[in-house]
Simulated assay, not measured.
Amino acid sequence: MAATRLIVLFNLKPGRSVADYEAWARKTDLPTVNGLKSVAEFSVFRVTGLLGDDVARPPYQYVEIIDVKDMDCFGDEVNTDAMRRIAADFQDWADPVFLNTARLEA
């Protein structure tokens, strides 16, 4: 079974602190999701700008990349109490867009 890359795009909700979100992501979100057996790697990126445009505001503040080794196992793991708490916390921070992707091969 081919690995799946999930891409998550999001902005923090109004009134939410960047510093507080990033502290939560470092302390809670990153280690928890990276600890899942089904996940090969989970990374969070702060968007710093648009390539070639120093003026325009990017449409999203953050991008998450989740490389999933086994989607069936991932489904089981995200339905645990611990992951439901993480997901609920994340929903308090942002209204994310989750994209499932498939790599195009040459």
Rank of each mutant, 00 (worst) to 15 (best):
P59T: 01
F45K: 09
V78L: 14
D76E: 15
C73Y: 12
E41R: 15
N79H: 13
D53W: 00
S38F: 08
P14S: 01
E105V: 11
R85C: 01
Q61W: 12
R26C: 15
T32D: 04
I86V: 10
F98H: 06
V68H: 03
L9M: 02
R57V: 12
P58L: 00
A102L: 04
G35V: 10
N100G: 09
D70E: 11
D20N: 11
T48Y: 00
T32R: 04
F45Q: 10
M71C: 04
I86A: 07
K69P: 07
E22I: 11
K69L: 10
P96T: 11
R57F: 00
K13Y: 01
Y21H: 15
V68Y: 03
T28Y: 07
E41G: 09
C73G: 15
R26Y: 13
F10E: 09
T28Q: 10
I86C: 06
D81S: 05
I86E: 02
N79Y: 07
D76P: 05
L9T: 00
L36P: 03
M71V: 14
M1T: 06
E41I: 08
V18M: 10
I7Q: 02
R5L: 06
A19D: 15
V39K: 06
R57W: 02
A82K: 09
D95V: 01
T48R: 02
R5V: 05
Y62D: 12
Q91Y: 06
Y21I: 11
I7L: 15
D89F: 01
A23L: 15
E22T: 14
D20G: 10
R5T: 03
G49F: 07
A40T: 05
A56M: 04
I65R: 05
K27V: 08
K37P: 15
A102Q: 08
F90W: 02
R26V: 12
R103P: 00
Q61K: 11
F45W: 14
R26S: 10
N11C: 02
V33F: 03
A88D: 14
P31I: 01
V8H: 09
T48M: 03
A106S: 11
D76C: 12
C73R: 14
V8W: 06
A40W: 10
S43H: 11
W24N: 07
T80Q: 14
Y60P: 08
I7M: 13
R85Q: 07
A40Y: 10
D95Q: 05
K69Q: 08
F10Y: 12
